[in-house]
Design a protein around this nucleic acid. Sequence first.
DNA 1: ATCGTATATCGTCGATTAACGATAAGAGAT
DNA 2: ATCTCTTATCGTTAATCGACGATATACGAT
Lengths: 110, 110
Amino acid sequence: MPAPSTVSDARLATMAKALAHPARIAILRTLARRSCICGEIVEELQLAQSTVSQHLKVLKTAGWITGVIDGPRTCYSLDPESVSDFRFMLEPALEQWEVACTCSADSSCP
Amino acid sequence: MPAPSTVSDARLATMAKALAHPARIAILRTLARRSCICGEIVEELQLAQSTVSQHLKVLKTAGWITGVIDGPRTCYSLDPESVSDFRFMLEPALEQWEVACTCSADSSCP
DNA sequence: ATCGTATATCGTCGATTAACGATAAGAGAT
DNA sequence: ATCTCTTATCGTTAATCGACGATATACGAT
């Protein structure tokens, strides 16, 4: 029997990839605090506007956030459902991995 | 006040980055099952040996796994401590993010 | 209709990633 | 000492990432 899952691992990897940059983590933290922000993020992180826009796009594509256009600006928010999905995919695995023994019995190991 | 954390976000991002590939997730799942494997992973995933070796290096560098050389082979295992670190860094954030409202009050939003 | 603001997109650059085959290095066994 | 097996590393390739400035687009206000 092969390792379980593998189906949703693609999505898990995609969301992890979007998380794999300090600037994007910072953006998520910011959105968690005051929800709905656009170019204010540019001030908070000291990055060019185009760079921030790209990071937002990555987060949006991966599903972490949603963007609602509000006149000339776009209002970004965390997508709680996707956060929930991510937790549901990741946490059972992490729990299992944390208790994995350092070296199991049926193995070709020292 | 800026967003909290940012200190360990670098490490969080690093570990997330290592997680951001289906093959590496598969490797972690495998190691969680039977611990201590080396080239058996090459069979499980259908990838070249050098590719698997690289993925193992990425996981090791990020701290997810440890490698103990055992004669001619190397025995890899999950590092429960790092898994724990990762959980400790990530889960509080995820909990917070999941309950973040879609659009908060003090915001320039619709 | 035009101006100003806000944001997305384009094009570019250097750096990194992912994959592979080929080669080197280490440890046992003959 | 040599052969074999296992794994790490090297070199290459195409693709992607991260950052930026410049430009285009969209909207609201004048």
